[in-house]
């Protein structure tokens, strides 16, 4: 079943065309990667799908219903959520209070305390509950971000460069976590480094200057000469 359907999305900022007539489809259970050089419109794409920005034109369907113009807090209740390229937690509150804030959504069937503890344990935040979220390491904050989303039982989580800024060993751990995350929800992941995409994604969309230039399994995309030349040729993959 189609989980997310984005048809003909365009977005301009003044004279800059951040997205040009982009189509993206995702089915339930799929892990979709998005790559592209800096400034190619990846974050703008997520901003539009999650209700942070209004597109100039195009259609947005989630679970086959239109979500155009739907506010982010409504999307959270519908099961569509995101993380940010620059990590974002309630830095002035303790980890425990961050968890409480995530539970405020109050959906029926929200995780009971046993499941909550299991999630906290899985993301290795048990010993941090009393610490200020702002005092955690970047990797811990990224895990807290994931935890707060999972407590809201999302159907689709859109991750904007989840390994950005992490050390090499942490990247490996994060990839392992994201692998396990697949069992819990569908994932849309923006990445800069090819490695994450190759290991995680079932399918990849390549953006270039706001245009989709390729869409297919990672192995095929890596063989695509245009992508290799324009993208892998210009950045260190």
């Amino acid at each position: 079943m189609s989980l997310l359907e984005v048809k003909g999305i365009s977005k301009h900022f003044g004279g800059v065309a951040a997205l040009r007539n982009v189509d993206v489809q995702m089915t339930s259970g799929e892990t979709l990667g998005m790559i592209g050089p800096n400034g190619s419109g990846k974050t703008t794409f997520v901003n539009i799908v999650t209700g942070h920005l209004v597109p100039d034109s195009g259609q947005l369907l989630f679970n086959e219903g239109s979500i155009a113009g739907t506010a982010p807090h409504r999307l959270a209740a519908l099961g569509l959520t995101r993380t940010y390229q620059a990590v974002r937690v309630f830095g002035g509150l303790s980890v425990g209070k961050n968890i409480e804030a995530a539970m405020l959504l109050g959906l029926p069937g929200a995780p009971e305390s046993a499941e909550r503890n299991e999630l906290v344990h899985w993301l290795r935040l048990d010993h941090r509950l009393a610490s200020l979220a702002g005092s955690l390491t970047l990797f811990e904050q990224r895990r807290l971000e994931l935890l707060m989303r999972l407590l809201q039982r999302p159907q689709l989580i859109m991750l904007d460069e989840p390994v950005g800024g992490l050390a090499v060993t942490e990247v490996r751990e994060m990839i392992a976590l994201l692998h396990e995350l697949k069992a819990r929800c569908s994932i849309f992941v923006i990445e800069h480094t090819m490695r994450v995409i190759r290991e995680l994604a079932d399918r990849v969309v390549v953006l270039m200057a706001g245009e989709k230039i390729a869409d297919g399994p990672p192995a095929d995309i890596l063989r695509d000469r245009r992508v290799v030349e324009q993208y892998l040729g210009t950045t260190h993959a």
Binding site: A71, H73, R88, F90, L93, L104, L105, M148, Q152
Partner: peptide, 23 residues
């Protein structure tokens, strides 16, 4: 819960909105 929503909004209204709070 209302007060907890207030605090979440004070701390980061963008994140609060993404966490399902109607800011």
């Amino acid at each position: 819960r209302l007060g907890q929503r207030f605090i979440a909004i004070r701390e980061d209204d963008v994140l609060a909105e993404v966490m399902g709070i109607d800011v």
